[in-house]
């Protein structure tokens, strides 16, 4: 029989990931592995993992990685890329890492136009620590630190990182995608490939925000979480290319 699909070499063959059912972290890392494989980049790939569920990848992925202090992934990536310019350096960060504790590092790396790629996984909640409120938590959405749900008066509004970064002059490419449907998952893969290609071409800072789910901390099953993405998350975080210097 002809083999038409196999697991990417980017993921270890001998272990099963420990992510919750319906979690999209494994989907996104699979896409990254596929892109690296198709672009023949494993020999050059250095992944900077954020803190939180992102960090769980370290034991499932098969290529070089470093765990950064919480929020500092873009600064760590800056250090690697500047001192090892031939490496393909990308961060893999959640919403707390990229948009809360690491906001300064994220904005500043983007503003410098660092030639790195950022994979920003936004599920609107803190996962590993147990469902606390994130900068991207939706209005009214319950969190373990906002038991009555997010309110404007107390917590302000969800942060739209793509649109915020789009205020800067330097970034080369900013796109928001999701993995809620097969079509969107394919678009995410293309976006990741583009972010990597930009780096190879020296275009500067590229960021792909991927809207995902956290069924466990959202208190839903996997299908319910998909519906929630469709109905709520994407209403707040519309998909699409926000900046593409090649088109602009």
């Amino acid at each position: 029989m002809e083999k038409i699909y196999s697991r990417t070499k980017g993921l270890r063959a001998d272990v099963v990931g420990g992510f919750c059912p319906g979690c999209m972290h494994s989907t996104v890392m699979k896409l990254i592995g596929e892109v690296l494989e198709e672009m023949n980049l494993f020999e050059r790939a250095a992944c900077v993992l954020g803190i939180g569920c992102c960090g769980l990848h370290m034991d499932y992925m098969s290529f070089d990685n470093i765990t950064s202090p919480h929020g500092r992934a873009c600064a760590v990536a800056t250090g690697i890329k500047r001192s090892s310019p031939d490496s393909l350096v990308f961060t893999y960060q959640g919403d707390g890492d990229f948009a809360a504790i690491g906001l300064g590092e994220s904005m500043s790396a983007a503003n410098r136009g660092e030639n790195i790629s950022v994979i920003f996984v936004n599920n609107g909640i803190y996962g590993m620590t147990g469902g606390q409120m994130a900068p991207t938590t939706l209005m009214g959405m319950r969190a373990s630190t906002a038991p009555a749900g997010r309110t404007a008066k107390e917590h302000g509004y969800p942060m739209h990182m793509c649109e915020i970064l789009n205020q800067l002059t330097a970034p080369a490419y900013i796109e928001r995608t999701s993995c809620n449907t097969p079509q969107n998952t394919l678009k995410t893969k293309k976006a990741i490939a583009k972010a990597f290609q930009n780096q190879l071409e020296g275009k500067g800072f590229s960021m792909v925000e991927i809207v995902t789910s956290c069924p466990t901390n959202w208190g839903m099953d996997a299908l319910g979480a998909l519906e929630y993405i469709n109905e709520k998350m994407l209403a707040e975080f519309p998909l699409g290319v926000i900046r593409d210097a090649r088109e602009g």
Binding site: I66, P69, R72, A75, V76, T78, I80, R82, S83, G104
Partner: peptide, 17 residues
């Protein structure tokens, strides 16, 4: 760097390379 924290994180990255 944009801060001392970012600067030492950059050094952590560069030294790790």
């Amino acid at each position: 760097g944009e801060s001392e924290i970012a600067s030492v994180s950059m050094v952590y990255g560069a030294a790790s390379a």
